[in-house]
Every structure is written in C-alpha cells, then in structure tokens.
Amino acid sequence: MLGEQALNLIKELERNPDIIPPYNDDLMKRCIEEIKSLYQQNINSLAELNAGRVGAEHASLLQARHAAIERTKRCMLAYIYHRQQRLKRYRWDYGGVLPSTIKVCLCEAEVRWFHEYCKNLADFQSGLGESGSCGVDLTVNMEPPKSLFVQVMCVKDYDEFETSDGTRYLLKKNSLHSLPRQDCEHLIRQGILELV
C-alpha cells in the first residue's frame, strides 16, 4: 500500500514516547525509494498525457500519486523533527555529554547537529551577563524553585560542610538543616541527607 512505510516511521516514534528509538535507516531508504518510483511513474504518465495517448481520466491518477509523495515526505520530516526535539530535550536534561546508550541510536547527521547545538548554546550562555563574567548557566533551575533553601535531614554522620556562600555547617546524624538547593544535591544523592 502506498505510504505504509511512512506511517510505520511515525508509529515507531509514537510507540516509544520517552526514548529515542534507533535511527531507522532501512525504513527511511524504502520511503525514499517509494517517492522515487512514484515520481518516475508521474513523469511517464505526464509524457503520455501530453502526447495524447491516454484519456484525461489519467490526470486525477497523477494528482493522487503526487499527494502520496507529499504525504510520505511530510511523515519523514516529522520523524526527523521529532527526533531532533527529543535530542534537544536531552541536552537540557542531561547536559552536553550523551550517554553511549543514546549515542548508538543516532545517525551521523544527528550527532553532528547535536554538537553544533551544544556549541551554539555554550556560546550564547557565555555571552550573557556582564562582560568578563562567565555567563549564566541556563540549564539549572528549569522550574522556578519555590525557595532558595531546602530543608534536609541528616541521616548519617558527616564532617563539616561548607556551602557556596561560605556558611559552614556541621552535619551530624539526626539534625535538620536548611541548605542552598544546588549545594546539597550531591549529598542527597550520596544518601547523607534526606529531603524533608
């Protein structure tokens, strides 16, 4: 059936909404083949039509084929565009270094685009703020935090801890502290602190 391959491309993305599925080179190629063959058929038909060898009813066949071409093309573009969107989201969520599990799923062009995107973002960020400063990291605090500090419970004895603004805390088991959000994240991950 015409356009079935293109539909499969879209379905594949639809089935895996949270990840980037491996780049389906095979299906893409088959879509291209399909477009090519349809186009060739159209050219042939057009030549016959102009020569007057077939009746005017063939003109509508021509239009149908053209619509099929357009649709396949749109599906392919959608496929590429959505993958790009997902890739972009990874940049904001995980930072500039892609994990290898994701990397194997990308095609060469996508990897190139990703590096380009990272570079642009870095350039933009370093240009922000006053000249001489190191710019602003736009990827932290994607949702506006309710407060600058979070309340954390200390569940293991830890030594003295200094926050980025120079305040010193002594973290001991069974004590409650309010710490700047970004400073204590790694301690939470280590299991020394617990969010209240």
Binding site: F149, Q151, N174, S175, L179
Partner: peptide, 13 residues
C-alpha cells in the same frame, strides 16, 4: 519565619 526570610538554620533536639 526563618524560611520566609531566607535565614539558614540547623535544628538539633
């Protein structure tokens, strides 16, 4: 109150 005014604190029983 401390939370409202961004005062850092540690609480120990």
């Amino acid at each position: 109150l401390f939370e409202c005014d961004h005062v850092k604190f540690s609480v120990l029983p």
